[in-house]
Computed example of a mutant assay.
Amino acid sequence: MFRGVLIDKHEGQQTAAVQMLDEASLPEGEVTVRVAYSTLNYKDALALTGASPVVRRFPMVPGIDFAGTVVSSSNPAFQPGDAVVLNGWGVGEVHWGGLAELARVPAKWLIPLPPAFTPRQAMGIGTAGYTAALCVLALARQGVQPGQGPIVVTGANGGVGSVAVALLARRGYEVAAVTGRPQEAEFLRALGAKEIIDRAELSQPGKPLDKERWAGAVDVAGGQLLANVCAAMRYRGVVTACGLAAGMAWPATVAPFILRGVSLLGIDSVMAPLPDRLAAWQCLAEDLDPALLESLLREVTLDEVIALAPELLAGQVRGRLVVRVGAPA
């Protein structure tokens, strides 16, 4: 038996609770992992609260990522004792995830834990930081280089945004951080942001084309913010879009794309192929200082995650929530 968060649904009513689970209930997979740390992500909060139909099979252990140690493996790629990380692949949605002491998954979903990070640090990065790295690498692949102009990051106080600010600054980019919490300006400047922009400035309907401001963008918001970011891109600017915190709708025009040659790149972290995952974690190992990472982390226990989910959805959480999954001492 092992402890975990379990979401269930009966007669249309969803419940979530920490309870004892039977190892025999684990889903199929080649590798069983003892989870050391997981995280509480925006998607996990949606699943736990039922605010969005994230969970597609019940009962479900949420947690879209985890870091831990292999207990057993029928695949020669992994041996007992190996330190591993998982991000995405539908865990916490269609396959039991990381908010439990044990997880069982296909071997192809796992990557070795980079030596630069402890399991706690890896989950401090988590899917949010790994997604940020995918965005930063995509900007570079599209030719956006330091010195070409500012890079704007929306949702800069959140998990993706805060790591994106830190990575971009470390790589020499000038970063403009958009936040709905201007009182956190010093935190963002400590990460490397040169300019702080109040989210309200970009939240209202704007012009199809605005003054050219940014060479690149990392957008976690969607909605009106994304439309306004695109409208203010410089000629041949590049926008990476990876979230919908401000809404799934996109009230924009084609003007930035056909008049300025702006590119809009979708960033999917869930099903990204192995080479992209390894490149993202290599980027994180090289460009994210673990000491700086500590300022982004708040460690919580498995028993706290259900109550914290509504706070995360309300935008009241700064940085990364790292969940110590092991049973309390």
Rank of each mutant, 00 (worst) to 15 (best):
I7W: 09
L265G: 12
A51E: 05
G92T: 02
T49N: 09
I64T: 04
R236C: 14
I196V: 00
W96D: 13
L321Q: 09
I306R: 08
G155Q: 03
A227R: 05
L225D: 08
A83Q: 01
G124H: 07
V144N: 08
D303N: 14
R3T: 04
A116E: 00
G192Q: 14
A138D: 11
I111V: 03
R324H: 07
P310C: 02
A116K: 00
L312W: 11
A215H: 07
A36S: 07
P275E: 12
E30D: 13
A280Q: 01
Q183T: 11
R189M: 14
L226G: 14
A255Y: 14
G326K: 13
R141S: 07
T32E: 06
F2I: 00
I125W: 06
N75V: 14
E93A: 04
P115A: 11
P106W: 06
L225N: 09
G29H: 01
V220Y: 00
S73D: 12
L284N: 04
V218G: 01
A245C: 13
P80Y: 02
L134G: 01
A252W: 10
P76D: 10
I125M: 01
V178T: 03
A231V: 05
E93V: 07
I267Q: 02
D287N: 13
G172V: 11
P273W: 13
V152Y: 03
R298A: 15
N157R: 07
P273V: 13
R277F: 02
A169D: 05
A16T: 01
G155S: 06
A291K: 14
L264S: 09
A285P: 07
R234H: 13
Y235H: 05
A255M: 15
I7D: 01
D289W: 10
V323R: 07
S25Q: 04
G159Q: 05
V35M: 04
G50R: 08
P106D: 00
L40V: 03
P112L: 09
Y173M: 02
Q148S: 11
V262L: 14
R141M: 09
